[in-house]
């Protein structure tokens, strides 16, 4: 095995890593917002909303991400810039998983919290937003952390629609150097370090939040 190619190609890795992080960052933000929205739809007493959320979540969880990427990129032909389509696909996908995590978290919050808020005259929506959801988020942080790590790993699939993220650039390096294996190892190490660091950062955040326990 030889790793001399890194000397010539490290810029490719860096550039790819930058896009991986950018895609994941925006996808995480949008999919959390979308996931919470879907979870609230799912728990809503308005039948149309909960029905929509159930159907959506079932569809997303029952089809491969790769198919969803193609559906959004080619199927919808939204005329979006490629990277926006990529963020959209990731968010559409992860939103469904986050919705289920958030729903479980909301249902785990003691019903008395909602009752106490309502007894003070707060609306259902405000009680959710200010009392129930913040507690739910804290409870589900470990599960959310897992979802973020999955999003980072899922960005690698965006190479199929030509986004020059990390995996795409690894392929380019493999083609240029005629090395089938070694560029992948470097790529894998970069993915691993990223998710490992993220996992620990969230661990720190979690301990901080425990201050209120």
């Amino acid at each position: 095995m030889t790793f001399y190619f890194v000397e010539d190609y490290w810029m490719y890795y860096l550039e790819g890593f930058k896009w991986t992080i950018l895609l994941a960052f925006f996808a995480v933000i949008i999919s959390i917002a979308w996931g919470i929205t879907l979870a609230l739809f799912r728990l809503s007493s308005i039948k149309v909303l909960s029905w929509f959320a159930v159907a959506y979540i079932n569809f997303i969880r029952g089809t491969p991400l790769l198919v969803q990427i193609y559906l959004i990129y080619y199927g919808l032909s939204l005329n979006l810039p490629d990277y926006l389509a990529a963020v959209l696909a990731l968010s559409v996908h992860s939103g469904a998983y986050i919705a289920e995590v958030v729903r479980a978290g909301i249902q785990a919050v003691d019903k008395g919290q909602m009752e106490a808020a309502r007894s003070l005259g707060m609306t259902h929506g405000n009680a959710m937003r200010r009392i129930v959801v913040p507690q739910a988020i804290k409870n589900i942080l470990p599960a959310l952390c897992n979802e973020f790590i999955i999003i980072i790993k899922n960005t690698s699939l965006m190479s199929v629609i030509g986004i020059s993220e990390l995996m795409y650039n690894v392929d380019t390096i493999r083609g240029n150097t005629y090395l089938a294996f070694e560029p992948l190892i470097v790529g894998a190490i970069i993915y691993f370090i990223t998710t490992y660091v993220l996992k620990h950062l969230i661990g720190i955040l979690e301990r901080r939040l425990k201050a209120s326990d």
């Binding site: 008395g112 919290q113 808020a117 007894s119 005259g121 707060m122 200010r130 913040p134 507690q135």
Partner: peptide, 27 residues
């Protein structure tokens, strides 16, 4: 009308995510 009807529960149900003062001032 609930604004005018205070309620105290057996199991307190203080808002766990808020400080004592915020519990009192949030409503």
């Amino acid at each position: 009308h609930r604004e005018k009807i205070g309620m105290v529960f057996q199991l307190f149900y203080l808002f766990n995510n808020l400080t004592v003062l915020d519990n009192v001032t949030i409503a």
